[in-house]
Amino acid sequence: MRTPRFSLLTLTLLTLLSGCRRPSAPAGADAGTPRAEAPKGPEVTLTVKGSDTMVVLGQRWAEQFIASHPGVKLQVTGGGSGTGFAALINGTTDIAMSSRPIKDAEKEQVRQRHPTGPVELPVARDGITFYVHETNPVDSLTLAQLKAIYQGDLTRWRDVGGKDEPIVVYSRENSSGTYVFVKDEVLGGEDFTERAQTLPGTAAVVHAVALERNGLGYGGAAYAKGVRELKVKKDAHSEPIAPTAENIRKGTYPLARDLFFYLPRQATGTARAFIDYVLSPEGQKIVTDAGYFPVK
């Protein structure tokens, strides 16, 4: 039996109308509640690279910052201050972390790409610390003694008031800002002894000294776990000074230094927001909690 044409037309109209209606809300749902989240903006990636001394601090800043900025992806990696500057020069990082001031030659290379850069921002303070094994009886060394040890002129602990044992010397790789700082401030720009065992990060130096009872190494104060920190004397007649927060703040510890962010240009947008966070009371509390010292 043929279906009446009127019925077919009616059925077609009803189908079209039903397709135009908004679906009813599920039972118990608020009719005013959106069915889906609003579209999110594009994810912003900020790259921070450089100093191994600062990498743990940088990661802690990043973790807290992205917790309140869910659209931001923050990548923090180490490799040494020199690695950070190389990345800044070739445009592969937004921020370079450094435990030393930038060199004039590095500045000029940055300016070839960014004529108004680089921008230098102290973000924390640190004290270069010399570590010994927990059983080592030596309590302090003068800057002259440290220089003699790291140049190979003093080779046994008895030469500095310790046991008649060889001094096992640990150092950082030459891309490290800590290496450069010790070379400039302790060795007077002269070379390290060939006997120094080069390790790729401060954590590795601390680990080596913790295992070697005759070891001597250096790095940031925040890493001194499972080893003992030496006090440092400016000369034989000076009192020994420990790398404490108070001594570093007052400037009495002879090997205190700033830790820096370097940018290719003045910060804007997400980079500016991250720097503002780092220098805020909350960001500077993270500095203290991590074992470093605030800049203000």
Results as ranks from 00 to 15, higher is better:
Glu190Cys: 03
Ala38Asp: 10
Ala256Thr: 11
Phe261Arg: 01
Phe65Gln: 10
Arg21Ala: 15
Gly32Ile: 03
Tyr131Glu: 06
Ser98Gly: 06
Asp126Val: 04
Thr142Asn: 04
Phe261Tyr: 12
Gly117Glu: 08
Asp153Glu: 15
Asn214Pro: 10
Ser81Ile: 04
Leu88Tyr: 02
Ser51Asp: 10
Pro240Glu: 07
Lys40Trp: 00
Glu194Cys: 06
Glu165Met: 12
Val160Thr: 05
Val205Ser: 05
Arg265Val: 07
Ala25Ser: 12
Val55Thr: 11
Val209Lys: 09
Gly82Cys: 05
Met1Tyr: 14
Gly91Cys: 07
Lys73Thr: 14
Arg195Gly: 15
Ala27Glu: 15
Val169Arg: 12
Asp139Ser: 14
Val110Lys: 01
Asp139Cys: 05
Lys147Thr: 06
Glu282Lys: 08
Ile95Leu: 11
Phe274Trp: 01
Pro294Lys: 05
Leu13Arg: 09
Asn174Ile: 07
Pro243Ser: 05
Asn214Ile: 06
Gly80Tyr: 08
Ala27Gln: 13
Leu74Met: 11
Gly91Glu: 07
Thr129Leu: 10
Gly152His: 14
Arg272Trp: 02
Lys40Phe: 01
Gln75Trp: 00
Lys225Leu: 09
Asp258Cys: 06
Pro281Gln: 07
Arg265Ser: 09
Asp52Gly: 15
Val56Glu: 15
Ser24Leu: 15
Arg125Ala: 08
Pro42Thr: 12
Ala273His: 03
Asp164Pro: 00
Asp191Leu: 13
Arg100Met: 01
Ala148Asn: 09
Val76Ser: 02
Ser51Gly: 07
Ser81Val: 02
Val48Arg: 00
Arg228Met: 11
Ala245Glu: 14
Val205Asn: 14
Pro281Gly: 04
Leu154Trp: 10
Phe181Gln: 05
Ser175Met: 13
Tyr292Arg: 08
Ala204Ser: 10
Thr3Ile: 15
Thr129Arg: 11
Gly28Met: 01
Gly91Tyr: 03
Arg5Gly: 03
His133Gln: 09
Gly50Gln: 03
Gly71Met: 11
Phe85Met: 15
Phe181Glu: 02
Gln75Ala: 09
Val206Phe: 03
Val123His: 04
Glu63Ala: 15
Lys250Val: 02
Tyr170His: 04
Phe293Glu: 11
Trp61Ile: 05
Glu173Tyr: 12
Ala144Val: 10
Arg60Gln: 15
Tyr262Thr: 02
Ala208Asp: 09
Val168Asn: 12
Val227Leu: 09
Glu185His: 10
Asp30Tyr: 04
Ser175Ile: 14
Glu246Cys: 01
Pro118Val: 05
Gly152Ile: 12
Tyr262Leu: 08
Arg156Asn: 13
Val119Arg: 11
Ala267Arg: 05
Thr142Ser: 14
Ala222Thr: 02
Leu216Cys: 01
Pro118Lys: 06
Lys231Arg: 12
Ala96Lys: 04
Ala236Pro: 00
Arg21Pro: 00
Lys285Thr: 04
Pro137Gln: 02
Lys103His: 09
Val182Arg: 02
Glu173Met: 13
Ser99Met: 03
Phe260Glu: 00
Arg2Leu: 13
Tyr150Ser: 06
Leu279Pro: 00
Phe85Trp: 04
Asp258Met: 14
Gln75Asp: 07
Ser68Gln: 15
Gly283Thr: 05
Thr77Ala: 13
Ala236Ile: 12
Glu246Tyr: 05
Val227Ser: 06
Val232Ser: 08
Gly251Arg: 12
Ser175Ala: 13
